[in-house]
């Protein structure tokens, strides 16, 4: 099997105006690995995820997904920006799940899930609808297939959002605090879906504050602060014996 890492970040930096949000971040995610990211608010976790699928453009460093530079092509020493259509093609293989779900409110659950396979991949309506219902079944929402997002609970909406991302058959899934906007009793159903996904062998980067999930499902836990990786390792170890003082003080607040 291919041993190129799924995601590789080398000294990645990102500025917004004069504010440097990512400061030379290094990170590697292997195939089938579940990487959990924790860190204080404003440490650049979301920004990093958004760089991975080029919703944000990095200012320096290198970022590869599946051996391909994100947003650029390298020929010899020169780096060329990719065209919009090429960037869109890269994004097709990367699923993203947002904190606030971002479902399309004017479409039913099924229409949300079939939109991209139908319009982007060019599957027939019938085939994309069949697959959409399959994906909804997979996240336990077959019975809500024809409901609009407003008619669903937060947990159900987030599961539809996961199904929508999975419908493009991505090789990598990014989760940005997928349960932070949910009522406590709805968190479990979303984490269960993600856990099953991990068991199925999906490569995942999960920004989360659910330490139980990180411990149980994560292969690696990364603590980020101030735009860089402070510490990483097996979750149980990082949680039980944080090496860095900043990790210790953060964990003491969330545990």
């Amino acid at each position: 099997m291919n041993d190129v890492p799924m995601v590789q970040a080398e000294r990645v930096s990102k500025r917004f105006g004069h504010v440097e949000v990512l400061k030379g971040l290094d990170l590697e995610v292997a195939r089938r690995e579940v990487l959990c990211v924790i860190g204080p608010s404003g440490s650049g976790k979301s920004t990093f995820l958004r760089c991975v699928n080029h919703l944000e453009q990095i200012d320096s460093g290198r970022l590869w997904v599946d051996g391909e530079l994100v947003g650029y092509r390298q020929k010899g020493d020169r780096i060329y920006e990719l065209k919009e259509s090429e960037i869109a093609a890269q994004r097709r293989d990367i699923g993203m799940v947002f904190q606030r779900f971002n479902l399309f409110p004017h479409m039913t659950a099924t229409q949300n899930v079939m939109e991209a396979p139908c319009r982007v991949k060019g599957l027939s309506r019938r085939e994309s609808e069949r697959q959409a219902r399959e994906q909804l079944e997979r996240v336990g929402l077959a019975h809500k297939a024809d409901n609009y997002p407003v008619q669903l609970s937060g947990g159900q909406q987030q599961r539809v959002a996961i199904a929508r991302a999975l419908a493009m058959e991505p090789k990598l899934m990014l989760f940005d605090e997928p349960t932070s906007a949910l009522d406590p009793e709805l968190v479990g159903e979303v984490l269960d879906v993600m856990k099953q996904l991990a068991l199925d062998g999906m490569t995942m980067i999960v920004v989360t504050h659910e330490m139980g999930f990180a411990r149980e499902v994560g292969d690696t836990l990364v603590f980020m602060d101030d735009g860089a990786v402070v510490e990483s390792g097996p979750p149980t170890e990082v949680i039980a014996h944080p090496q860095h003082e900043r990790t210790q003080s953060f964990l003491s607040k969330v545990l």
Partner: peptide, 21 residues
């Protein structure tokens, strides 16, 4: 909400398709 455009782009939809759909 700009989140709508982001979700569409994350699915690989082009600017024009995102606008139209």
């Amino acid at each position: 909400d700009p989140g709508q455009t982001e979700a569409a782009q994350a699915l690989g939809m082009s600017r024009l398709l995102t606008l139209r759909r």
